[in-house]
Amino acid sequence: MDTFAFSLLGFFVVGYFLLAGADIGVGMLLPFLGHDRRLTLAAIAPFFLGNEVWLVASAGLLTALFPALEADLFGRAWGALIVLVAAWILRDTGLWLRGRQEGRTWRRVWDGAIVAGSWGVAASWGVTIGVLMGGGGLLFAGTTCGLFALHGAVFAVVRLGTDAARAVARWVVRAALLAGVPCAVGAGTDDLGRTAPIAAALAAVLVGAWIALARPGGAEGRARDGSAGDGWERTGSARDGSARDRSARDRSARDGSARDRSARDGRERNGWARNGWALAASTLAITVVPLLGGLNLPHVSPADDATLTLTVIGPLVPVLLAAQAWVWWLFRDRVERPSYL
């Protein structure tokens, strides 16, 4: 039962960072990901509400299953956590309100709230975990900001498929590697035996992300394909590709060159695989955040009454996951037009 309690809490915490990390990262990079910010926000719109509840669930589980851990966490990182909640509220308010009224000032105010709130959430996670690591709170904020931003940028590459997103992702992966990794080492000097291997693994994963984000097909492929060269296309899906991709394909079909076409299809598959690898890498990279947090918490036993919560929630977990999977399946397509936000 103890193992189940730990696994359940760990599952929801890690799930939060993997899923919400992407929409928080997109919020951080909102000004850079494209001219049409409503389109950029449409990339995360269907997910952000369903993502943030993973953290709400984690907090509920923490109270019921591990009150001693909650006392330790909130006791040590009180200040950072209150900033976290404030930034979270600011960000959510911005997301919900931005699209509800026309007007330049209105949009700018809530864009500001989304961007500042997203950075605030990423940074206060860094400070929280930095405090748990025994100092260097602000230093680890450098790492979390880099990793959240990277995860968001890669998510934007996958969902929007624009060159702007890809260019941003390439910048961010460099920053995460060159600044984020040293920050993590600096924050974890208290226990380098634990921090150093994790930081090394993080560096390796980030190098992987960098390679995956490199320009597909090189400069030549880009020049030939124009803006469609980022190549996210689901061959075999009824709703695949955007109109732009289709027109590009029509053009190449009219060219009549079978060799050109097969070379292009190969590049598309290649681009799709690269995006997949980049997303896998940024996902893996952001797990370092909850991992370092968890490793630096004291060992405690679950509360006496934990069984009651576990008995009710255990059988429900597959249902919760199925509901979440439905959301991700329904909105798996690339974003083509603004949504409700």
Partner: peptide, 28 residues
């Protein structure tokens, strides 16, 4: 933790988690 924490934990998972996930689906 048990008497107060249990209903809170059940609220977050049994109720709010499902509510938010499905509300997102309903809106978007």
């Amino acid at each position: 933790p048990g008497v107060f924490g249990t209903p809170l934990a059940l609220e977050t998972l049994v109720a709010f988690f499902v509510e938010a996930t499905f509300l997102g689906l309903w809106i978007f």
